[in-house]
Design a protein around this nucleic acid. Structure first.
Lengths: 228, 228
DNA sequence: ACATAAAAGCGAATCAAATTCGAATTTGCC
DNA sequence: GGCAAATTCGAATTTGATTCGCTTTTATGT
């Protein structure tokens, strides 16, 4: 709808996304041997499945070990506790997600397009990785406890990015400069995550990605209309 | 803004709210002795505090027992497991919440007013009962596991009510008949719950109730504008 | 190929916390 | 005051996470 390509003004969003994509990767041990590296991946995949199925609290280390084909005590050679193992999963994937957004969002011309991309990518990513999404959206995101800095940060980045996109768009004049970025971001994120959560719990709407598009349309109309 | 008082048409919302308010109360045992009845309430209050502080998974039955001034094994005379104890809390309060909404919503003239009331009451209630809200919004609502029918139902009613309000409003001509009730309800609920969750986790915005009003304004504008 | 130190793996304890059980106490009621 | 039902609780039992110390495997230099 607008075009004003690359206004020079500092772009908040890029900075934030770049740092988020760099990730806070350094959990677990750093394997020196090949077999070990492979096993660590097996372990993470097995853990994702089991955690998604049973929830973190109910999941048994024994099940994860069996699923990964290693011994229970070996898990502790990789991660210091069941929780640390659980946290590692969203951290890795979120960093990857932010990276993909950076790559695909960079060439776009407007913040409006980037905002749309971000919201749609979030649902697509969840639809494509439902086990991971269950873990992130149903267990970790809302968890009372998590002070673990890396997780908290990776999750918070999600919100920071949306706020930055809204602000940058206002600054470029794509919508009212008086927009309440925080409130608008709350609506955008809340709607999308609620939709994802509903899908994860009930598989409704049947086609998450298809249902997202009209909702994003409606949400963007709200952004356009946002006044003081 | 509109007035069309009490159009006769069946009112979906009333039926749903009434059933929801009736609650699904029958958890735990039904004490015959006075002391026991009192203790059950102490237990539920203690449990609410401890669960809100530590999360359900980390909370220790021993802590709850100490806080309630009873022995650990006595808890099992009231509820069959830690989880059942945790579930009882939101079930009771939600029924009460729905009851209050019924009482306050009944006399209003428009569905628009009822919708506003419902959304604002939800945040108010959370702000007034933060321990309970932490338990509900951060732990139970998103929980992967809960098939326990009564909980699932009490939580689902929340969504059903919003959808019914949107539908009834459309039927009365308060907004477009072509509105996508499901999608609109997703936006409304998602925005509100996201706001509540953010407040519970970070105490931002500082004044939850005050911040809700302008957001609800914006959301209702979206309902008014909702086209096909 | 071979020796060796570092890296990785594992079974058998250990420990923490939920849950069960049966005896002892308290209550409501006659 | 006395009795049956209701309630309480301490002492097992059980489940499952975590730790420990020994064994096996790998990478690397010869």
């Amino acid at each position: 709808m607008l075009e004003k390509a690359t206004t020079p003004g500092r772009e908040r969003w890029r900075e934030i996304v770049e740092r988020a994509a760099a990730g806070y990767l350094d959990g677990g041990r750093d394997p020196k041997q090949d077999r070990s590296r492979r096993r660590q991946l097996d372990l993470l995949e097995a853990a994702t499945r089991v955690f998604a199925r049973d929830g973190i609290a109910k999941a048994k280390m024994a099940d994860i070990a069996a699923e990964a084909g290693i011994s229970v005590s070996s898990i502790y050679d990789y991660y210091p506790s069941k929780e640390d193992l659980a946290y590692e999963i969203p951290i890795r994937r979120l960093a990857q997600f932010y990276g993909e957004f950076l790559a695909q969002g960079e060439p776009l011309r407007t913040m409006r397009q980037r905002l749309r991309l971000f919201l749609e990518m979030a649902t697509e990513y969840a639809a494509r990785n439902p086990d991971w999404a269950r873990l992130l959206y149903l267990e970790i995101w809302p968890s009372v406890l998590i002070e673990e800095a890396r997780v908290r940060r990776a999750v918070d980045d999600f919100g920071r990015i949306v706020v930055a996109l809204v602000r940058d768009g206002a600054e470029r004049g794509e919508w009212s400069a008086d927009i309440n970025a925080y409130q608008t971001a709350t609506i955008l994120m809340g709607s999308i995550t609620h939709m994802i959560i509903t899908w994860l719990l009930y598989r409704r709407p049947e086609d998450l990605v298809a249902a997202t598009q009209p909702m994003v349309d409606q949400l963007l109309r709200l952004v356009d209309a946002a006044g003081p």
